[in-house]
């Protein structure tokens, strides 16, 4: 589904990603862990097409298409979903109208007939239930005045509504209390299927207790320096990231 080859990217002239390789297949859940500043969130931004990130080298293929050539909206329409670390507040745009617009545009892109109001409403209700999202929040302005947890849950609700192929969860666990974390994870688990894939970016192992990954990768200094199974996450939790640093230094010497 997703193939990243030798990806180099910089932001404001500063090299952030330095030759990253990663392959994600349908049905898989990958976790990307790493210390602060390793480039985890940058990877998410590059994949979603944030403008101030410049790809200087490498390729990204999504479902056989060159992702890097696409506008952010086309990436979304192709099926890439980014759950933002810091979802923006947009006063005056209602959550529901926003989703209706997004689904309308995505369906048009895929040459699907528009969803009628009734079907949309039904879908919305269904998904709200699935991810335990408060109906009151649906009718409010997009993320306006939402608590940190509500914003993250709204991201998962949108994920459920838009049914993407690849979902990138960028530090979705940050700022969540244990109950919110549980609800968010439950939602994600319900949405897992053999057809879709998840890329979970996190600093802590805690989230991975709830969403069990198939693979765990350690991102350090712009590269994936170690890959393994979920046991790797536990190891990281125990040892921290410092040992990686030493290893890296030894390695480069």
């Amino acid at each position: 589904m997703l193939i990243i080859k030798n990806l180099h990217a910089e932001v404001e002239g500063k090299q952030i990603l330095k030759g990253l390789n990663l392959t994600v297949n349908a049905g898989e859940v990958h976790a990307i862990m790493g210390p602060n500043g390793a480039g985890k969130s940058s990877l998410a931004s590059v994949l979603a097409g944030r403008e101030n990130y410049e790809v200087t080298e490498g390729e990204v293929w999504f479902e056989g298409k060159n992702l890097l050539e696409m506008a952010p909206e086309d990436r979304a329409r192709e099926g890439v979903f980014l759950a933002f670390q810091y979802p923006v507040e947009i006063p005056g745009v209602s959550n529901i109208n926003f989703l209706k617009t997004a689904i309308g545009e995505i369906r048009a892109y895929r040459n699907l007939p528009p969803l009628d109001a009734k079907a949309f409403l039904q879908l919305s209700k269904e998904k709200q239930k699935l991810v335990e999202f408060d109906a009151k929040l649906v009718n409010r302005s997009l993320n306006e005045g939402f608590s940190g947890g509500e914003k993250k849950r709204n991201e998962i609700f949108q994920l459920a509504m838009l049914e993407p192929l690849l979902s990138i969860l960028d530090e979705t666990d940050s700022g969540l209390d244990i109950d919110a974390l549980r609800i968010v994870s439950k939602g994600v688990n319900k949405l897992r299927s053999p057809k879709n894939a998840f890329l979970i970016i996190t600093h802590y192992q805690r989230l991975l207790e709830y969403i069990v990954p198939d693979f765990v990768h350690v991102l350090y200094d712009g590269r994936i320096v170690k890959s393994g199974t979920k046991e790797l996450a536990l190891e990281l939790e125990e040892k921290g990231y410092d040992w990686l640093k030493e290893k890296e230094e030894v390695g480069t010497n």
Binding site: A48, G49, R50, E51, A71, P72, E73, R75, A76, R77, F81, L82, F84, P87, V88, I90, P91, G92, V93, N97, F98, L99, T101, A102, E105, I106, Y109, S141, Q158, L162
Partner: peptide, 26 residues
């Protein structure tokens, strides 16, 4: 805000129109 809307599959023009409406909404 524009990037957020685009990342949800909404085209740039539509996203801008949405944001103008939102601006006036106040």
């Amino acid at each position: 805000a524009l990037f957020y809307l685009r990342a949800r599959g909404i085209g740039e023009d539509t996203a801008k129109a949405l944001l103008i409406n939102a601006f006036a909404f106040d």
